[in-house]
Amino acid sequence: MTTAATGTAAPRARRTGWHRLTVTDVRRLTEEAVAVTLHVPDDLRDTFAHRPGQHVVVRHRNTGRELRRSYSVCPPVGDPDAFRLVIKRGAPDGFGAYATTVLAPGDDLELSPPDGAFALSDPSGLSDLSGLSGAHHHVLIAGGSGITPLIAMAAAALREDTACRVSLVHAVPTTATALLADELAELKDAFVDRFTVLHVLTREDRGSELVSGRVDTARLPRLLTALDARPGPGTTFALCGPDGLVTAVRQALIAWGADPASVGSEVFTTAPGQRRDACQDTRPETAPGARPARITALFGGRRAAVTAEPQEDVLLDALLRAHPEVPYACREGVCGSCRAKVLTGEVELGDQYALDADDLAAGYTLVCRARPRSTEVTLDFDA
Rank of each mutant, 00 (worst) to 15 (best):
E32G: 04
V34N: 11
L111K: 14
V40D: 06
H50K: 02
T235S: 01
L109D: 09
F381S: 02
T344C: 05
F268S: 13
V40I: 13
R250W: 05
Y364W: 08
P324C: 03
S374F: 00
R14P: 12
R28T: 13
A354T: 07
E160C: 02
A185M: 02
L179R: 12
P173F: 07
D108R: 15
G264A: 05
R20C: 03
A329T: 01
A226C: 05
V367Q: 00
T225R: 14
E110R: 14
L201V: 02
C240I: 03
L320D: 04
A99N: 10
F195N: 10
V86M: 03
R369C: 11
R373T: 12
I254Y: 04
S112R: 12
D317R: 08
A293W: 03
L184N: 07
F381I: 05
R27N: 09
P52Q: 08
V102S: 12
L38F: 14
A13R: 15
R250A: 11
R159N: 05
V200M: 03
L67H: 12
D228Q: 12
F48D: 09
T8F: 06
L29A: 05
T286F: 05
S337A: 15
A357P: 05
P242N: 10
T307L: 09
T174P: 06
A82C: 06
A261D: 06
T175C: 03
V246T: 07
A163Q: 11
T344F: 08
T236E: 04
V36D: 01
T162N: 09
D43N: 12
R20P: 00
D25T: 13
A329G: 08
E332I: 03
G207F: 10
H136W: 06
G363S: 01
D189Y: 03
E285K: 13
T63H: 13
H55F: 15
R20K: 14
T8Q: 04
P284L: 00
A305W: 06
V57L: 01
T24S: 14
R20T: 13
N62A: 15
D216P: 11
F191N: 10
A305L: 06
G143I: 02
R14E: 15
A97R: 13
L315N: 04
L29T: 00
T47V: 15
R371V: 04
F48A: 00
A171G: 10
H55W: 14
S127L: 15
A155Q: 02
V192R: 11
D358I: 09
I141S: 00
